[in-house]
Design a protein around this nucleic acid. Sequence first.
DNA 1: GAGTGGTCTAGACCACGAA
DNA 2: TCGTGGTCTAGACCACTCA
Lengths: 237, 237
Amino acid sequence: MEKKFQAIYDLLAKEIQTEKIKAGQLLPSENELTERFATSRETVRKALQLLSQNGYIQKLQGKGSVVLEQDKLPLPVSGLTSFKELSRSMSQKVETCVTSLSCKKARGFIQQVLQCEEGTPIWELHRLRKLDGESVIYDKDFLLKELAPGITEEIAADSIYDYLEQELGLSISYAKKEVVVEEAQAEDKAIMDLGSYQQLVVVRSAVYLEDTTLFQYTESKHRPDKFRFVDFARRTK
Amino acid sequence: MEKKFQAIYDLLAKEIQTEKIKAGQLLPSENELTERFATSRETVRKALQLLSQNGYIQKLQGKGSVVLEQDKLPLPVSGLTSFKELSRSMSQKVETCVTSLSCKKARGFIQQVLQCEEGTPIWELHRLRKLDGESVIYDKDFLLKELAPGITEEIAADSIYDYLEQELGLSISYAKKEVVVEEAQAEDKAIMDLGSYQQLVVVRSAVYLEDTTLFQYTESKHRPDKFRFVDFARRTK
DNA sequence: GAGTGGTCTAGACCACGAA
DNA sequence: TCGTGGTCTAGACCACTCA
């Protein structure tokens, strides 16, 4: 059974996305929504808080909740989104090529970033992402084998997150990310279509499960002209 | 009078920051906190939700709230943070130099991004940020003059946000951002210390007030080696 | 003054984890 | 079984906007 506030959120989000309620208009008041959904005001407010967080509305005390303008498919690199989910919203032709999938024992750098015992089995996965036939993104993933024993090249080419969440029932919960620009390494130049680009945008992320286990470490290198990051942020005072 | 849930948040955040409660430990249970702060459980939960959003804790059903590891001063380019607030957390010597402050009538590109009438008075502000004597960040701001009539070079060199919020009582509420990499223009090369760098990380942002007025548009160009972006993101399902 | 959102309360029942 | 967090309720009072 879906949670009530989630259902209200989904419905309102959909009405905004489909422009059944247009930007600039006010949502029905909290009291009206309370009646319409036969619930309590706090539950309505939970839904509205989600809408506000995700940039759908702005609440104005004494007035109501204004619907904000929706951006036309910004790549939500922000938040936690996998490549497959991303590519769905891209018009271009996208291809994923698994260049390497091997199992290693943790030591040195990898052991350190995954914060595990020396010798822990680790999947090391390299994937090349092609847009319109050009290799422009190079991902290296390191994951605890213990938690995802059955990874295959097919799964890796599709979506690891789908596999984890739907097949294994693991819940990805949060991530820490860092974005920097670095010189392309010899390996990058050999494997990617860099043209004259000498630098790459590198996104490093640590992915955690619900129980706070650090589960995956990823280094994603992007050719600068194919990198775009968009963000919606609220001021927290 | 400070809101109760905010006070509880502040106190707990401080205890985590100062490692009075260490990473990996559990927070007191919601019932305990309810008693300690002589409040209701929902109020405690509001505070905990904030802590969770900001990456301080992870809630585990049936167990409690685990304190997460704190990162040592990540530049929070994420969220909504002004340069002055940023520089406070940087060890390096930071200098801001106002290279231009003028008032224009909106038209063309500027009119479009600020979504205002043609001819609306606009402040155009150029600032150069120096780290250790090198000019590595170049900001161009466009703001509605109507809302911030009294801007001076002194204010611009200090913090515009402080002026807006403390002097004018305006409330900055949210922003949309985009990060891309672009070729350095002739102007950028002339005014910044770019060395052999040919490309710049460009952060474009639109800043909105509480009443959803689009108030400011900023283009911030960073020398790639001095750009770093960190982010904490929760998975939203 | 009427209607809006913002905060807070005191309770209820449920799902989950650990012992 | 007991303590934890997750959801939900029905009410209260306040601050704000607008007519």
